[in-house]
Design a protein around this nucleic acid. Structure first.
Lengths: 120, 120
DNA sequence: CAAACGTATGAGCAATTATTCACATGAACA
DNA sequence: TGTTCATGTGAATAATTGCTCATACGTTTG
């Protein structure tokens, strides 16, 4: 970082054109970044995090999740819908009952990584 | 999952007491779950995701980040504050300029995992 | 078919939050 | 010391969102 002098041609204070190119090249598409933020937004709610952790080891029906977490069936159902849309949980119908489970191992990995970060 | 009959003593439709215990045992503390959600909430905004990705390979000053992303310096500074508070970025002062960089490799790992999940 | 049960969903409300605008800091330089 | 430059921040606003309440849907059972 030696190029600290102001360069009026360039409009960037600290980074030269090469740096700009390097940064731009590694940037994913705008859309992908948006989708990524949307994905993390789903993890960014303690209710949904609780639901995911409850499902960490067991397949559960909506009512059980609600009971375990001390929540309304409606609230749980609303959040399950969001988790479902984002492919974080899968479901299976058995008569009147719908069983939910974590969709894939990415979910577990993401939760674990987050916990690791908090451990510092 | 054979215990589908309703059991009025138990208040849980599908899960027996053993199941409840198993689920409860693996649940982290309420506080940790809350903190985890707070962490992901930070990732759950496309502006902050963009800032993190811009910092993926280069240490940058506030004004450069703003220029690269086409944002106000103020908006970037507000978001950097949040990223800083959550230990996702670190900073270094050099004269009037403040350089920001990703804090640790957890950040990179978390971003990568998220992208992987989207790739399905 | 009607009733009961588990689940899903739309509307409305309260709370959170990202941005803008104006201004405050804090450092370098005349 | 006063000015300029880079950054930080408080208040206000607009938009998002999680929950509740009421109700609808889909399945089973009488």
């Amino acid at each position: 970082m030696e190029q600290m002098e102001k360069n009026p041609e360039q409009d960037f204070l600290c980074l030269d054109e090469n740096g700009v190119e390097t940064v731009r090249r590694q940037m994913p598409d705008e859309d992908d970044l948006y989708d990524l933020a949307e994905l993390y937004k789903v993890f960014g709610d303690s209710t949904r995090i609780k639901i995911l952790y409850v499902l960490f080891g067991a397949e559960l029906c909506v009512y059980d999740i609600a009971r375990l977490l001390g929540m309304t069936q409606s609230a749980v159902s609303h959040q399950l819908r969001i988790l479902k849309n984002n492919k974080l949980v899968k479901f299976r119908r058995e008569g009147k009952t719908v069983f939910y489970a974590l969709d894939d191992d990415h979910v577990r990995s993401i939760l674990k990584l987050g916990m690791e970060h908090l451990g510092d």
